[in-house]
Nucleic acid binder design. Sequence first.
DNA 1: CACGATACTTAGCCTAGCTAATGAGCATGG
DNA 2: CCATGCTCATTAGCTAGGCTAAGTATCGTG
Lengths: 144, 144
Amino acid sequence: MTAERTTADTLAKTLRDAIIRFSRRARQARPVGDLTFSQLSALTSLQLAGALTPRELADMERVQPPTMTKIVGKLEERGLVARTPHPTDGRQVILAATDEGRAIYALHERARNEWLAVQLDRLTPEERETLARAAEILQRVARG
Amino acid sequence: MTAERTTADTLAKTLRDAIIRFSRRARQARPVGDLTFSQLSALTSLQLAGALTPRELADMERVQPPTMTKIVGKLEERGLVARTPHPTDGRQVILAATDEGRAIYALHERARNEWLAVQLDRLTPEERETLARAAEILQRVARG
DNA sequence: CACGATACTTAGCCTAGCTAATGAGCATGG
DNA sequence: CCATGCTCATTAGCTAGGCTAAGTATCGTG
């Protein structure tokens, strides 16, 4: 009981510290295509959705529009994402992954030699299952 | 089988995206004492260890020494951490939490009205257990 | 006691967030 | 039919948090 209570009380702290340290470690080993986490995540969303406006992408990624402008700017510089004008609304812009962007995404999806993938391979199947479930919970918490 | 294989293949991506979105969401709701994650994490390590040199703290937090200099600088400005000279080695410095720092830490440890704690309270016990286990795994991965 | 190694900091750079302000385009009410 | 107000994206400017490289002081040793 006491142990359970303590666990619940300190879970926020434990989780926060674990995540920040994990993030720092993972950042050092730049993933596929020398893209940052933010860039990779935005590219993933775009790839899955097909095409989005900056506003939609920002909402999906849980950032403010100006932040997304920056991230998309970087991706566009590298030719991974293209901006095209909206057909009927001159204010909006349509974002979509280019062929090269799709190639990077595909590479990333099964980059088994990448740092994180290697780490995950070393875990037991049960541990991977735990992480998969935790990822789903974290997404849900972020959404709420 | 196929599903398992796919899960293993895409876990890296899933986990990365979940963590980045969670982090962004959590950052918006600044935790206790208006401290950032980095500052809170450093304060936690210091608190648990009692006293550390900047190098030790940097190693523990998985950052480079100059980064820790900055973080400690912020904490010192707020009077949460004190630098004292090392008794025998003039090059080194001893970092320790001040009384105020310990108070903030204690507050943080059971801040059940904080955004993240509230979110966690809404989960089922099984989900919290999953997150607790995942936190341990992430720490281990970050260490390796 | 000079010289290399170590500890911390400083300097300078980048990414990634944010808010506030700007400018362009849409839509609507008189 | 156009003035006015809203929405969308971007720009400007700020902060935090990373990094490497260089600087400075101190230690320890040959």
